[in-house]
């Protein structure tokens, strides 16, 4: 089964309510119960059906819109988009991020390695309770004295509290997670888009604020549990991506 169908919200689950609702509604579209171009029930109806607040419904719908399942039409309602997930072709995917000028050596400068809590949009990006502490890492990658990549990383503190003391300018974060903390990464979800740099991001990357850059958001999972969210802002002239699809079996 490609996805888990849940018909009801489990209030005892550690998973946030909006994410449970997201899965339920996604399941309705993937199963064909909600057909392409059909209008979905109103917020009020969804609140009543699933006994959740408007805020929970809004968050779930916003994520479905963001991920291409739904589209909003002002004054008309919310509609199911054309299927965005390819069907019938089961493929292994290989994704590589390539820096232009292959073989180039980069250095890492850690700007922050401290602790915070889920704030603002982070609540949407990380599937953990709001009162959980997060290790927050901010680092910059430098090539030929030029900053090319700005990363912010959030990891639930309880998974690897000693990570705060690691030398992340020398050691690979992913290797530490897998080898030292025994957190096996089993799935990574990537979203890539173009974004306008904030003035602070622009300063960090040596570009004017407002100029375009590549934004990559990655959610890392170990089994069913999300173990990391990484937000990378990349210098637009220094990266390209390579995706290889290989038919299974």
């Amino acid at each position: 089964m490609l996805y888990r169908m849940k018909a009801v919200i489990d209030r005892d689950s550690h998973q946030k309510l909006y994410l449970q609702l997201y899965e339920i509604l996604k399941g309705k579209m993937e199963s064909g119960e909600w057909t392409v171009d059909s209008q979905i029930p109103t917020e009020e109806d969804l609140c009543k059906t699933y006994e959740v607040s408007k805020a929970t419904v809004r968050l779930a719908i916003s994520e479905l819109v963001r991920n291409g399942y739904l589209r909003r039409q002002q004054g008309k309602g919310t509609f199911v988009c054309k299927r965005v997930i390819p069907e019938g072709l089961s493929m292994f995917t290989s994704f590589k991020e390539l820096m232009l000028d292959a073989g180039v050596v980069f250095t890492t400068k850690v700007l922050a390695q401290t602790v915070t809590m889920p704030t603002d949009e982070l609540t949407l990006k990380l599937d953990i309770p709001d009162d959980r502490h997060l290790i927050y890492i901010k680092r910059i990658r430098i090539v030929d004295n030029e900053p090319v990549l700005l990363q912010e990383i959030y990891i639930p503190h309880h998974l690897c509290p000693s990570l705060l003391e690691e030398d992340l300018e020398k050691d690979s974060l992913l290797e530490l997670l897998e080898k030292k903390y025994d957190i096996k990464i089993t799935k990574v979800q990537d979203y890539i888009e173009i974004e306008s740099l904030t003035s602070e991001e622009g300063r960090s990357l040596g570009l004017p604020g407002g100029s375009c850059a590549l934004l990559m958001e990655q959610s890392f999972y170990s089994g069913e549990n999300q173990i990391m969210y990484m937000r990378s802002v990349k210098h637009p002239e220094r990266f390209r991506f390579f995706i290889e699809l290989e038919r299974k079996g």
Binding site: A112, T116, M117, P118, T119, T123, D131, Y136
Partner: peptide
């Protein structure tokens, strides 16, 4: 110390307010 929310010093007062609302005022503890 992990009974209390943590915040880096450059985060905004608004973000701290959000933390307090979510972690301290609406939680069970």
């Amino acid at each position: 110390v992990f009974e209390f929310p943590h915040i880096p010093y450059w985060f905004s007062i608004r973000q701290a307010i959000g933390m307090i609302k979510k972690s301290l005022l609406s939680g069970e503890k």
